[in-house]
């Protein structure tokens, strides 16, 4: 097993290296505080690629995770940013305020981070979709709403 494990790791590192992706490192692993300074590339490789896969290749099982490489929907930055903020079809929302993420066990990204990861996706995996967006543009989109107070 050890040989196989080492081999698999070597292959994994190799394939990541070949496709020019940052390899997941430890920088975010110690605590929640670590995420606050993560940039688009880091957010993609530490969070998004869990489902959308390295290289934005997507995956197919009983359902599918959309392939981001060459996805024509990414020509709309609003669609991409709205999806990151609000989630879609079981995808967790990343636009909840920091004090509300516990309820759905998800993660808060700032508007700047949402812009940054959208820019990353739209300029990687062979994509070349329009101009970079800013935090101000993301801010203007609908964000997930706060749950009502419970007594």
């Amino acid at each position: 097993m050890k040989t196989r494990l080492a081999l698999t790791l070597a292959l994994a590192a190799l394939s990541l290296g070949l496709s020019g992706l940052a390899r997941a490192d430890d920088s975010l692993f110690t605590s929640k505080e670590g995420i606050e300074h993560a940039d688009g590339a880091s957010i993609y490789t530490h969070i998004c690629q869990g489902c959308h896969m390295p290289g934005g290749l997507g995956a197919i099982g009983a359902g599918h995770y959309p392939k981001l490489a060459g996805d024509p929907k990414l020509s709309s930055w609003q669609y991409a940013a709205f999806t990151v903020l609000n989630g879609r079809n079981g995808m967790p929302p990343f636009g909840l305020p920091p004090d509300q993420v516990w309820e759905t066990r998800t993660v808060h990204l700032s508007d700047e981070q949402v812009a940054d990861v959208v820019n990353y996706i739209r300029t990687h995996f062979g994509n070349n979709d329009g101009e970079a967006i800013t935090a101000a543009q993301v801010k203007a989109l609908p964000h997930p709403s706060a749950p009502p107070a419970q007594d």
Partner: peptide, 20 residues
């Protein structure tokens, strides 16, 4: 694991998760 750390572990390959 739940939450952020779970997302980060998901983004790794299975052997990387085991190693971590």
């Amino acid at each position: 694991i739940w939450g952020l750390n779970a997302m980060e572990f998901t983004a790794m390959t299975p052997p990387e998760r085991v190693m971590k």
